[in-house]
Each structure stands twice: as C-alpha cells, then as structure tokens.
Design a protein around this nucleic acid. Sequence first.
DNA 1: TCGCGGGTTGACGTTAACGTCAAGGTCAGG
DNA 2: CCTGACCTTGACGTTAACGTCAACCCGCGA
Lengths: 132, 132
Amino acid sequence: MTSQAEPRTTWSVGELADELGVTTRTLRFYEAEGLITPARSGTARVYDHRDRARLRLILRGKRFGMSLAEIAEIVGMYDGAASSERKQLEILLDRLGEIAADLRARQQDLARTLAEVTEVATRCRDRLQQLP
Amino acid sequence: MTSQAEPRTTWSVGELADELGVTTRTLRFYEAEGLITPARSGTARVYDHRDRARLRLILRGKRFGMSLAEIAEIVGMYDGAASSERKQLEILLDRLGEIAADLRARQQDLARTLAEVTEVATRCRDRLQQLP
DNA sequence: TCGCGGGTTGACGTTAACGTCAAGGTCAGG
DNA sequence: CCTGACCTTGACGTTAACGTCAACCCGCGA
C-alpha cells in the first residue's frame, strides 16, 4: 500500500510561515508589497512550490542584508527573463554580473573577518594559558 | 625636508565621517548609543586610531546585517577582554566561537548563492546565443 | 568686524518591516 | 448548534537607525 509520505504540493499561510520560520503577517506583507502572488482557494491563500522557492530566495536576500525593494527588483527580473526578450535578458545579465561581483566582495570581507576573529580567539586562549 | 605625508593621528567628526562614508549624525548617534567615546578638545570631538578602528569594526558588523545592539555587545566584550579576568576571557572565547560558526555558515550560504547566480547567468547567455 | 565654514546640543520627522489588535468568515468535531 | 482552529481584511502601533532643522558657539582670513 502506498504508505509513501506523499510530498506536499501546496501550503496554507500558517503552514508555510511555520516552515520558513516567519509569521503569517510577514507573508501577507510580502504579498501586499508585490513580492509574491499566491493562488486563492475562495478567499484563502494557497502557496505552491514556485511560491515557496521564491520565498526562500527572498529570505536569503534578507539574510544578506538586502532591502525588500532590492529583492523585489531582482525576483521581478527573474520573472521578466522568462519572457526571453533580448533586451530583458541583457539587462538581467548585467544585473547578475553586479550581484556576483558584490557577492565575491562579501566573500573577501567575510574571510578577512573570520581570520580576525579566530586570531583574537587564539590570543585569548594564550592569555588563558598564562593565568592558572 | 620632510615632505613626508605625515600620517594622520587624529580626526574631527567631519573628516572621519567622510573617510568612512557616513554622516556626522551617524557618528554622534553611535556615541549616544555608547558604541564609541571619542576624546574632546573643549566641546569638539577628537577621534584617534582606536576610535577609527572601532568604527571600522562597527561598520563591518552592519554590512553583515548585525544590529547596533549586537555590535555593541561584541565590541564591549573586546574591551572587557583587556581586563584579563579569567571569567571574562572565557565568556569572550565562547562568544567568539559562536561568531566564527555563524560566519562559516554565512560562507556556505554565500557560496551556494553565488553558484546559483552564476548558473542563472550561464543559462541566460545560452538563451541569448539562440536568439540572433 | 564680518561672515563663513566648521563644530555643538536638543528635538522632532521619517522609513522599512513588520507587530498587534479588531471584527468578521468558514469548516470539522463533539 | 456551538466551539475552536484556522483564515480574511483593515487599521493603527512599534522599533531601529538615522535625517533634518533650529539655535547656538568658535576660530580665522579678508
């Protein structure tokens, strides 16, 4: 018998909010800001895989310190890219280049910071050794 | 004659703000929040190298999306560590471990994102090739 | 001496990203 | 039929991190 754990295919606000670790208010807010447009079953929101993936993207952007406006611009371009209009694609490609450059800069920044932190930790341990 | 560009040793608010790419208001705000305590020449603020380094730390923290409160906690511990009290050092060491772990997690996140971005860019270029 | 380019302290305004009610619809279980 | 757990749309409150403005002082080059 198919005792298979049928993998989820749609979600309600509450379910998805729980899974993503945010509140339902947040999801509704994002919708009001035009970041997502889930389907409706009557009046209730119904999120599918695309919505879910998109939200993951949005939250990742947030972790990187982007504003919702910036995020909206980017995810909007992803959509526009599907239209496969030459001009659109070129713009997107340009923007992707900028983003990649920014990410690489962050990697440098992160690496430097991590080095500093571990160095401070080392000095800290040294001092502790000299105490007891 | 010593036409050496005497390296700066102190700064006024305006000078330091310019160098760091923030406004004087920001520096005053950080002081009000207890993040820095520059010396005074009469009533005017005078920043030295330590203040400058500290501000760089603060701004880096901001780039990583930390709140000023979190940053205050950390830089505060750096100060407390100078006291070389065993307990203080152990607490700091602990916290540094957490921070390092967080930074490494961010590195993973960043790497994944960068990979995705470059992949999208590649697909984008492919599509462009198939158009003309 | 005058005005200009700095500096100072309040005090109030602003923006983003939600939190927090209030007031109500819907549907399954007991 | 009623309760409880969800969902809905407003509308207003909140917090962080400054921006902005007013009113003031201070030194200095013309």
